[in-house]
Design a protein around this nucleic acid. Structure first.
Lengths: 146, 146
DNA sequence: ATCAATTGCGTTATGCTATAACGTGTGTCA
DNA sequence: TGACACACGTTATAGCATAACGCAATTGAT
């Protein structure tokens, strides 16, 4: 009863908890902390942080959700589906960057090949093997800076 | 008695607590959490986290210490003193990037003009006003990847 | 000189973020 | 059918960070 339910889509099948967490994040305009997600899902039977963290772990693994390190919060991935520069396997993009507005909370997700390459070159020159790269710009978005 | 003590150097004068925290970070090979710093300084009279956090806030403000967002930890700034590309005011560098080895914990701090520019251009094109940019690459350093 | 503003400090209490450790149920597949 | 993998639920605990109080010392304008 707790196994993932297969769907007609190409995306990985999500379990009930994973779907609930993903839906909440998708509907949100701003990043959400795990505990805020938990509160949103109390009516759906969520009682403990682990239920959220376990779902988030899987969603992160699937590339459907990103963690914002400077905020200790999470956002649904903004890439529609099959964006540019897949890494070969199914899910998609390479390193992604975020611009986070400290006034309205809005987050813009973007990708820059050149930045990716420069960081990759730096690593290669030093035999550093990157596993995960975080790029987050905090500041004021156009609307709030006006 | 708690005021900063002036020194013959050009760096900002540090208070006793600030010096203690900075010294501990400087001597460390790896990033340290605030609570680890606290434990190292119990013998010097530190009793509470706030003593550490307050010192860290100032050191961050002075640009003498960096916070690693993906680790919730802190490192002393590796820039000797007057590196390239100061931002006009005294303390120094623009955006800095970190390569963090997940095996040995070593952190390399570096700067890349090109990356800076690309991210700056992205922001400018969207009227986004950057306040602070975080770039952290986690992976395996040359020594550990071998 | 003196008073107000500022800054650093110490303490207690609290809140937010994340994981350990245990046991249950279910689907898969040899 | 039994071993395995995986999702789940629960309780407890660990780790990171700040609020709110009050005191001491320095600064600097009057």
């Amino acid at each position: 009863m707790n196994a993932p339910v297969s769907t007609p889509t190409s995306a990985p099948a999500l379990t009930k908890n994973q779907s609930l967490v993903f839906d909440v994040l998708t509907r949100s305009d701003a990043p959400m902390s795990a505990y805020t997600i938990l509160d949103r899902l109390r009516d759906h039977g969520f009682r403990a942080p682990l239920q959220v963290y376990r779902a988030l772990d899987k969603l992160l693994e699937f590339g459907m959700v990103h963690r914002l390190e400077s905020l200790n919060a999470f956002v649904a991935c903004a890439h529609p589906e099959s964006e540019c520069c897949g890494k070969g396997h199914g899910h998609g993009h390479g390193t992604v960057a975020f611009a986070i507005c400290e006034s309205c909370g809005h987050v813009s997700e973007f990708h820059d090949h050149e930045v990716d390459h420069r960081l990759g070159d730096w690593a290669k020159a030093r035999n550093f093997k990157p596993a995960k790269t975080t790029i987050e710009i905090r500041g004021l978005c156009g609307a709030c800076a006006a």
